[in-house]
Design a protein around this nucleic acid. Structure first.
Ligand SMILES: [Mn+2]
Ligand SMILES: [Mn+2]
Ligand SMILES: [Zn+2]
Ligand SMILES: [Zn+2]
Lengths: 149, 149
DNA sequence: CTTATCAATGATAATCATTTTCATTGAATC
DNA sequence: GATTCAATGAAAATGATTATCATTGATAAG
């Protein structure tokens, strides 16, 4: 439990940032909700239950800070706000997102399988790929079954 | 020249939308700037030169309309506003975007080469893929050369 | 354990992209 | 040419995010 938490808090301290209770609470909550894609507002609502005095601005600032440290990744699903998720370990690229056009559910897909494409891009264009962000739009398994077939 | 323009205007009329001079001007301009990724504000500024009376709300409304008809695709490069580009023909998926982390340039990459990955996703998760949105982050050819090589 | 420092916080106001409202205009139809 | 109602432009409203600023408190020195 303290595993990932400790690593992140250490990272903050190593970068000279202060370990405030608000930051600790926010990081703990992000780990608790590591399967979700929380917006600042989502996170604020959750975190407020444990610290009713916390400010929305602090949530925004902390999310920005963690994203700047690459602890978090900011993602945009086109619903009018930024969402955040824990980043993959340094040597992995970010997982893909499968977005159901029927029910809106977002699921992750872990294998990236893009090495070949990235090498092709580099060969043909000279563009050196560092990372990618991939979204697939379609119909999830549940919705396909619900639609009979 | 009237080629793509006429097809889009016909599409509007077929869907019972009125062919106003504002819509015609906006579509013409989008075709003129088909290599770019214009924001509503960008487009407004350009279009205002030919019709100083045009309103920003009309630009927003027309972009929404064209996106709802799949004439345009809305893309988000994380710079605080939505951007638009002409959609690929119906049977093609959208092209990929290569985004340079050094100079910010966005270039397209046309072959999608994701058929295999999409089949793998469908096989393993039951998710039926209709389309994708793919961004690669890295360093463009120019910037790599500028950085010595 | 104090004390001093200055980063961090919370409340609030400000920004900025986008949307809504509403009176007026004009494209399409007959 | 007259009718109708979708489309427009100006302006206000909205909503996410950011900036401001007085106050607080984490951290490090004494
Ligand atoms: Mn995810
Ligand atoms: Mn493009
Ligand atoms: Zn679904
Ligand atoms: Zn570059």
């Amino acid at each position: 439990m303290g595993e990932g938490l400790q690593r992140i808090l250490d990272h903050l301290r190593d970068c000279q940032y202060r370990l405030t209770p608000q930051r600790r609470l926010i990081v703990e909550t992000l780990l608790d909700y590591s399967q979700d894609h929380l917006s600042a507002e989502d996170l604020y609502r959750i975190v407020k239950r444990r610290d009713p005095a916390i400010g929305l601005a602090t949530v925004y600032r902390t999310l920005d800070l963690l994203a700047s440290l690459a602890v978090l990744t900011k993602v945009n699903f086109g619903d009018g706000c930024s969402r955040f998720e824990l980043s993959a370990a340094k040597r992995y690229h970010h997982h893909h997102h499968l977005i159901c056009e029927a029910c809106g559910v977002v699921q992750g897909f872990d294998e990236d399988l893009l090495g070949g494409l990235e090498r092709t891009i580099e060969r043909r264009t000279g563009f050196r790929v560092h990372d990618h962000e991939v979204k697939f739009y379609g119909i999830c398994h549940q919705c396909r079954q619900a639609a009979e077939g």
